[in-house]
Write a protein that binds this DNA or RNA. Sequence first.
RNA 1: GCCCCCAUCGUCUAGCGGCCUAGGACAUCACCCUUUCAAGGUGACGGCACGGGUUCGAAUCCCGUUGGGGGUGCCA
Length: 469
Amino acid sequence: MTSPRFRIAPSPTGYFHVGGARTALFNWALARRLGGTFVLRIEDTDAERNRPEWTEGIIEALAWIGIHSDDPHFEGPYFQSEYAEQHVEMARGLVASGHAYYCDMTAADIEERNKAEGTQGYRGWSRDRGLEAGPGRALRFRVPEGTTLVRDKVRGDVEFDNSLIEDFVLLRGNGSPMFLLANVVDDITMRISHVLRAEEHLPNTPKQQMLWEAFGHEPPVWAHLPLLVNDQRKKISKRRDKVALEQYREEGILPEAMVNYLMTLGWAPKGDVEIQPWTQMEADFRLEDVNHSPAFFDLKKLAAFNGEYIRAMSPEQFLEACRPWLFGPDAPFPAERFDERVFLAMAPVIQPRCTMLADAPGVVDFLFLADPVLDAEAWAKAVAVPENVAVLRDCIAGFEGLAAWTADELKSVMESAAATHGLKAGKAQAPVRVAVTGRTVGPPLFESLELLGRDETLRRLRVAEATIG
RNA sequence: GCCCCCAUCGUCUAGCGGCCUAGGACAUCACCCUUUCAAGGUGACGGCACGGGUUCGAAUCCCGUUGGGGGUGCCA
């Protein structure tokens, strides 16, 4: 028994598609669980379109979702364009065996003839002309009569009437191989045993299967996965939708959350629990359990998954994960003012407030800013009520006299100030919060003040107070 | 046009003939908790597209209708 070989064959488009990521994950789960191999093949018959940096991007994206190129189950990358000679050679072999023939009709010729005869498509016109190879002559596959039965692991048996499939081109007039041919030849030579791909390829599968058979091989196990669609139920595309995996990473989606979410599209983890570790899903994943209907890629649900994963992290893990946004060019505060210990102390209250890692700096920016910008509108509203101003002044006085600068002490100062002016604690803290953090919402106030320190807190309060007319 | 696929709450799904007065998750709404905002807790809302069969019994099997999607290149 030879071990199973799976493959993922993205085209080098400069980004890695989320749909491709899910396909990769499904392949990966099976390759690892069954002790098989995951083959990465960069598919484009045209070497010109194959840029090295794009391949690097694909490998990086795969690594991000846990598919590492140094894993023993990983093989590749292979570049389809490098095997062109082999594709051509194999195709030519089909002429001798009667499975293919040369044709000199151009697209215009075909159109013209169809117009004249009132027909559609290429109707095998050059089948029996016995043309030799020559410039401008394409090589076409002689589709046999009968039917082709595709046994699909997720769809079941699908039967196609061969008479509805035209004699498709294998080699162009200039001699270069077509994608379909290259695909099959590569799958055969790389001994691929399982072809998992998106459902859009199902209608072309009989052509591929006929090729496998013409080459004298048993077709692989086919498995066509449900499409990923947008809110309009259309196949997600680069033009309309956010499809690049890289974009999600840049926004601060955790790879674990992305992997977990992607796995729930078209397949469901065992039990009623959707949030599950990869090891569990790898052990449970079965092709037979994959759905048949298209799945909507729901950003909101992805964000919810991400929030769950963020909350499950330790402060240290959270800090590490946040680094790119804490120190990146878009960081809201200068790197030298950032204090790891303060961030770590705040982590447990930052985490529940983030759905994306990119949200994190904004939650605690006031702690690391020399002068947080005051939201003018929020401030005006906070000090519009005389009682609020009174509480603010009481707090400044009370904070000044505090023996111990702790959250508890700060809280009791606020509580008694609020009580003396007949305010609820919730309302009373608004002016202090806005004065110190610049905003009306944010993490727990007194804990923040404790970390900010007595001097800086008082300084900000006094600066703000001075603006009251 | 022709071919193929699909059809359970708004969304992702569980269900593979009786455990279903259809379960979970996201979203939405309400309440609770609470120093704001979150998070958390409790609950509510909400679905088997339609019509025929088969069966003692159908979300589950069959046929049809409707609806949606995909494919049909000398693109990949």
